Amino acid sequence: MFQATQNHTACLFCSIPSERVIAENSLAYAIRDGFPVSPLHTLVIPKRHVVDFFGLTPAELNACTELLHALKAGIEKEDPTVAGFNIGMNAGEAAGQTVFHCHIHLIPRRAGDVEDPRGGVRHLMPGKGHY
């Protein structure tokens, strides 16, 4: 079992099975999303139990960014049809957060995976993606 730096037994990401970890550094780790939006959808998670993005230290932000870059390159190498990415976080229940341990979604996108991708994350609010 992979152990985050602080063990919060009720927290999914503080006791993730080690076989799910696909990359890590001293302050963060990555797993494939259990409910992927697209193939190779990946989560970057700080090892310290912190509720959301706004609680991350500068060092944790750097560690997460380092993993995001490495994972992006790996995904592009593994699947050359990947033509873009959505990177997102939910901070707070009103924003859709359901697991209250910070995690960053790295979602590979492919040409034609949706009819009209313009607006990207703006589609979270109905009618706001097209402008």
Score class of each variant (00 low, 15 high):
residue 94 A to S: 15
residue 112 G to L: 10
residue 7 N to F: 15
residue 31 I to R: 04
residue 10 A to D: 15
residue 54 F to V: 03
residue 93 E to D: 11
residue 41 H to A: 00
residue 80 P to R: 13
residue 122 R to S: 09
residue 107 I to N: 01
residue 1 M to P: 07
residue 53 F to M: 07
residue 8 H to F: 14
residue 95 A to D: 04
residue 113 D to G: 05
residue 32 R to P: 04
residue 105 H to S: 02
residue 29 Y to S: 02
residue 64 C to V: 12
residue 94 A to H: 14
residue 3 Q to N: 11
residue 67 L to T: 01
residue 27 L to R: 08
residue 130 H to A: 11
residue 24 E to V: 07
residue 23 A to W: 05
residue 128 K to P: 00
residue 78 E to K: 15
residue 66 E to H: 10
residue 107 I to S: 03
residue 67 L to M: 05
residue 89 M to N: 07
residue 79 D to V: 07
residue 67 L to C: 04
residue 55 G to D: 07
residue 122 R to M: 13
residue 53 F to Y: 13
residue 102 C to R: 02
residue 82 V to E: 06
residue 10 A to W: 15
residue 62 N to Y: 10
residue 85 F to L: 02
residue 62 N to S: 15
residue 52 D to Y: 09
residue 73 A to S: 15
residue 109 R to N: 03
residue 11 C to D: 11
residue 65 T to K: 14
residue 106 L to G: 02
residue 19 E to D: 12
residue 98 T to S: 08
residue 3 Q to L: 15
residue 55 G to I: 05
residue 3 Q to D: 12
residue 96 G to P: 05
residue 60 E to R: 04
residue 28 A to L: 02
residue 72 K to H: 12
residue 115 E to L: 14
residue 60 E to T: 08
residue 127 G to C: 00
residue 36 P to Q: 08
residue 61 L to S: 06
residue 127 G to I: 00
residue 55 G to L: 07
residue 76 E to D: 11
residue 68 L to M: 13
residue 66 E to C: 06
residue 125 M to Q: 13
residue 72 K to D: 08
residue 81 T to Y: 11
residue 81 T to V: 13
residue 64 C to K: 01
residue 6 Q to S: 14
residue 130 H to T: 10
residue 126 P to F: 02
residue 124 L to V: 11
residue 17 P to V: 08
